[in-house]
Amino acid sequence: MIRHLVLFKLNDGVGRDEPRVIAGAQAFRELDGLVPELEFWECGWNITDRPIAYDFAINSAVADGDALTRYIEHPAHQAAAGQWREFATWVIADYEF
């Protein structure tokens, strides 16, 4: 299994309450059950306010590297990630467990 973690940081001046941000978060929530490769899926807003904190997180798992590639290339994932490119940056970590 591969754990796929993503941490998003909203760009300066962008708020969680903006319609485009709300739509972006909803697009990621909707991936649960939509992308067959996802064995585990959760996402949500950070609840702490610390200088080093990121704003939004995805914690997911897939069976193997091929499944990870299919997930990343899935049109629904590409569409959701495309929305976030307009207002955030992110870091990822993929590891086997």
Rank of each mutant, 00 (worst) to 15 (best):
D66R: 13
W45K: 12
D55V: 03
Q26A: 09
R70V: 00
D55M: 04
W90K: 12
E86Y: 07
A63G: 11
F40I: 03
F8M: 15
N11I: 04
E37F: 05
R16D: 06
R3G: 04
A79K: 15
R29S: 06
Y71D: 04
L5A: 07
R50A: 15
V62H: 10
N59H: 15
W41Y: 14
T69L: 12
W41P: 06
G33D: 02
R3N: 08
D32F: 07
Y95H: 07
Y54V: 08
P19N: 01
L10R: 01
P51C: 07
E86H: 13
I22T: 12
H4R: 05
A61K: 15
G24I: 08
F97Y: 12
F56G: 09
D66H: 14
D12A: 15
D55N: 11
V91M: 05
F40D: 06
C43H: 06
D64K: 10
L38R: 11
L5F: 07
G13K: 00
L68F: 13
N46A: 04
A25S: 10
R70P: 10
D32S: 14
D49Q: 14
E30S: 12
R3I: 04
E73Y: 02
A25D: 03
W90F: 15
D94I: 05
I52H: 13
I58S: 04
E42I: 11
N59D: 15
V91N: 02
F8A: 13
D17S: 12
G15L: 14
L38Q: 07
E37I: 05
L34T: 09
W41S: 07
D66C: 10
E73D: 14
D17H: 10
E96S: 09
R50M: 14
P51F: 02
I22H: 06
D12N: 08
F97M: 12
E18T: 13
D55S: 04
T89D: 12
R20D: 10
H4V: 00
A23Y: 02
D17C: 06
C43K: 10
V91Q: 07
G13N: 01
R16K: 15
V35K: 12
V14A: 04
V6Q: 04
A79P: 06
F56A: 07
E86S: 13
A80K: 09
S60V: 01
V14I: 14
V14D: 03
A80T: 02
F8G: 11
V91T: 06
G82E: 00
Y95K: 03
A93M: 05
P36A: 03
F97N: 05
D32W: 13
P19A: 01
G13W: 03
A25E: 08
D64Q: 05
G33I: 00
V14N: 01
A80L: 04
F28R: 14
G65R: 14
K9A: 14
D32C: 09
A88E: 01
G65Y: 09
T89R: 10
E39K: 15
Q78P: 03
P36E: 02
L5D: 03
V21I: 11
A93W: 05
E96L: 13
A81C: 01
G65P: 06
I58P: 09
G65M: 12
Y54C: 12
G44V: 04
R20I: 12
L38S: 09
D12E: 14
A27I: 02
E96V: 09
M1P: 15
W90D: 03
W84Q: 02
F8D: 08
N59K: 14
A61P: 01
I72R: 15
Y54I: 01
P36N: 03
R3K: 14
P75G: 01
L31N: 07
R85H: 11
